[in-house]
Design a binder for these strands. Structure first.
Lengths: 342, 342
DNA sequence: CAACGCTGTTCCAACGATGTAAATCTTACG
DNA sequence: CGTAAGATTTACATCGTTGGAACAGCGTTG
């Protein structure tokens, strides 16, 4: 692998001149430039990034930390993030936390500090105090959980409002026994809490009572958890006629349980989700859901990070104001709540 | 951020001694070691990886290149790869090619050469000649497409045999008009070709004729493609009574089309897939499919790469023999071909 | 007691690229 | 023709780490 030195030798100039050509420095005589460029291509020169990074103090890589890459929501989000990052010249390194608090904390405390220039992080288990206790100075952008007044840039849909709207949608269809799937009692887990709060608001707004029995907690947010929770709900003496699942995977699991028990969806029980993963657009019935604009979230996250990385480079530690950005979303009504006709 | 120099100063020893402690060098007096370790933790020292990498000539990162991260098969595979890599101390950088030949070629020609120590690559569009033309010396492991006698380590299930078995399964159920979804006429695309070959073998073995009309090509391998292809097949004067889709996404799309046209699956038309993504375990009906052992594939890929990276470091360019590894798979019979009872 | 072989520590160079400042070369102008 | 103001190029130090060799202390051994 050719280094600047090799190229310089071949072109008969100094190393610095080659560096100048490579970096587009203005004051290089055109003859020299040509010579150097010839040598560059003859030797197929490519800068050694470790060296460049050492010198420049950056790595050209950002990390994206998600709970699980195989949860479609995060897969789709990751796709968008990688794309947005590539457009700005970043490479993306992916970390999986499995939603384990210790792993999440490690990230906040900077295990990747030396390897990346910034971190886009979708936390599950950690709370505000963990964020406050952070010492690592790597620029950070949080996704998906509202941490108001946190010391961190942050992007999320308004989970609570969206959940409220979804509940209102179900109530608007005439449902009076509306269940919820995906409550979580663990600390952290702001998302579950916010969606639950929205659900309660929605019930209240519709004049419906909040019935603890209709709220099924789940240990995680995968299909199996939704399927299991639905089994519990359907086993109630008076099962719900509509169920709001706190994400689409839960909803797909719930759907499977309902259908395999011979119930019709939505005639016997309506099911709604959250996230708008592609599966829900092709399930039978298709899934009513909240669709956050993932491309927008990803793009904004990368932009925010970019800005903050530049700022850090420029101004030392001038703590630029933290930005809380609300991502747009839409409520998509599909077959699982209104049937084929709708 | 503290450097070795800072730590050395604080501990009152030389930089190299600190380095020796950090790297577990044996000949350090226990007193010295303690002093240094104290200073290390007081300053929260973390090695600068760019510098270390520059010195050692490696980066600690491997790249994983897949067509699309949001295709569940690749999401699941990526999850496994990241996990397997983490166990061996690697970080994983993900590239998306979108199946675009130019992008795939770039990777082979080494755009990541300086940033990673090795590449795990799931190609779609490139062919054997592209591989042969490769000059980049980065260790490479290919996934998922058989390139016999290629100059490259490689892991895949026996696509052709698996496809043959699946076709046999359908024929064994008494089907005589068995369609195929996902043929591809593009160059490259060994996978599609192999699965098609297996399908034909399966038909032949069952004494069934090969009918070109029952083979639906698709531009890509997503749900929408499967849905569209199924529409074409069902519009035939004599539509197939069973359909083998070359991956699960196609199958899920096909399923959606069939169900939304009021057909019963499998009573009116049976559907089978390939890949065993999680969606297919929760769809209604659940999806009969070929289940490659993804964890095994991932783990083996990382091991192979690890070996090759070590070898490259040790022996210069001693071209170790290329290994073709066949990954195990199972045919999972579920509702979409045999119904609820089965 | 001198030479030897350990252990433990330090010094120096190098990895490859780039910022700084200085050296060299042109050109224009008085 | 001398000189100042650019234009162009170069030498050198530096980023943080580690390999190799040199060096120092010290108990053994012949």
């Amino acid at each position: 692998m050719a280094s600047l030195k090799d190229v310089a030798q071949r072109a008969g100039v100094s190393v610095k001149t080659v560096s100048n050509v490579v970096n587009g420095y203005a004051y290089v005589a055109s003859g020299t430039r040509e010579k150097v460029e010839l040598a560059l291509s003859e030797l197929d020169y490519r800068p050694n990034l470790s060296a460049r990074n050492l010198r420049r103090g950056r790595t050209g890589v950002i990390a994206l930390a998600v709970p699980e890459l195989d949860a479609p929501y995060f897969a789709e989000l990751s796709r968008s993030v990688i794309k947005a990052a590539a457009e700005r010249g970043w490479m993306v390194l992916i970390d999986q936390t499995d939603g384990v608090a210790a792993r999440e904390r490690e990230l906040l405390q900077g295990i990747r500090e030396q390897s990346v220039d910034g971190l886009i992080f979708s936390p599950v288990a950690i709370g505000r105090d963990d964020l406050a206790a952070r010492t690592d100075a790597t620029p950070l952008v949080l996704l998906g959980e509202r941490v108001l007044d946190g010391p961190t840039d942050h992007i999320a849909v308004d989970n609570q409002r969206a959940a409220r709207e979804m509940t209102a949608h179900l109530a608007g269809l005439g449902h009076t026994r509306i269940g919820a799937v995906g409550a979580q009692h663990r600390p952290g887990m702001g998302t579950a809490r916010l969606r639950l709060a929205g659900y309660r608001e929605g019930l209240a707004a519709a004049g419906l009572p909040y019935d603890e029995d209709l709220v099924a907690p789940t240990p995680a947010y995968r299909r199996a958890d939704g399927a299991e929770a639905m089994r519990r709900l359907l086993a109630l003496p008076e099962p719900p006629r509509a169920v709001f699942c706190f994400n689409d995977l839960l909803a797909l699991g719930a759907l499977r349980t309902a259908l395999s028990q011979g119930l019709r969806v939505p005639e016997d029980v309506a099911v709604a989700g959250f996230d708008d993963i592609e599966d829900g657009r092709y399930s039978t019935p298709t899934l009513t859901t909240i669709s956050p604009d993932k491309d927008r979230v990803a793009k904004t996250a990368v932009e925010l990070l970019d800005t903050r990385i530049d700022a850090g480079r420029r101004a030392g530690h001038g703590a630029a104001a933290c930005r809380e950005i609300e991502a747009p979303y839409r409520l998509l009504v599909r077959e699982s709540t209104v049937g084929r006709a709708g």
